[in-house]
Design a protein around this nucleic acid. Structure first.
Lengths: 146, 146
DNA sequence: GTTATTGTTAATATTATACTTACATCAAGA
DNA sequence: TCTTGATGTAAGTATAATATTAACAATAAC
């Protein structure tokens, strides 16, 4: 399949809102930055709103963060837009007649959960504020290079 | 897209080879257990062979592990069949005219790498022997339940 | 009221992956 | 040596998760 860039784009949206306090925050303007269309942006924002990360109301193009960037982790964003979709997927379609098939997959599940747990722990230590800080570092670095 | 179950199926193949020393190890037999077709199995085995985890020769239906199960980690399997494909994907298609777009994604990359690193560390601590052990535990548990 | 925008839903397009097919190549045994 | 059965690889097709698009009722601001 096409692989998901939801987390990536969702962070983009949140960052865009923080970085453009003066400019337009319509789904149209945000979509232009991500190079996608407004509907797509609105769907991601819908997820972020459900996740309690974003505040916005219908007909009012002024979305705002529900919490400080330092209180929004990558895990929050991941859960908001990807839900319970894991990083690694079991093959649940193995032959039920074959004992090896089912039981090996179930055995693997325990270990896949461990890996997921570690990845989520890592996501939880990274905040939107961290990403924004790195962003500022990159900007000043670019300026000094001129 | 259809999400990948390559790691899951590759472990299945390796486990099947260990668990069926007497039976047929043709790609046909293995495919029956995973409920897929022989061509698919051979492609995965090709990856495992390139990764140095599996030994097999053309025309000879007797594949064998290249190393002891305790020396084959989930990371080895992941690298063998998924290569450098990361767990989380950046959106590299953002608007290059928009400074925010590109730079935010590049900032995110550093943090995505951190998450990938943690997940791979977790994969490296889990061996095929661990999965097989869990498998045996499950089998004996099933028997005592009868 | 008028206008612009949202939130939501449904339909379509895209594309990474699984699956299938085909065939030259090789091993094993009669 | 010849036949058989299997492999390894590559190319083409199908599947399905995702992105994209389009449409529209509902809302806010003026």
């Amino acid at each position: 399949m096409k692989y998901s860039t939801k987390v990536s784009d969702a962070v983009h949206i949140l960052a865009f809102i923080v970085l453009n306090p003066k400019g337009s925050l319509s789904s149209d303007s945000i979509a232009e930055s991500i190079r996608t269309n407004p509907g797509c942006v609105r769907q991601l924002m819908s997820g972020l709103r459900r996740g309690g990360l974003l505040l916005s109301v219908k007909g009012h193009p002024k979305p705002s963060l529900a919490r400080d960037p330092s209180a929004i982790t990558l895990l929050d964003v991941y859960k908001a837009v990807e839900g319970e979709k894991p990083l690694l997927h079991l093959d649940t379609h193995t032959n039920p007649e074959c004992g090896v098939g089912v039981q090996i997959q179930l055995s693997l599940q325990d270990y896949f959960n461990q890996i997921q747990q570690r990845a989520e722990e890592a996501m939880q230590t990274i905040t939107l504020a961290d990403v924004l800080e790195r962003y500022q570092e990159r900007l000043t670095l670019l300026e000094t290079e001129l």
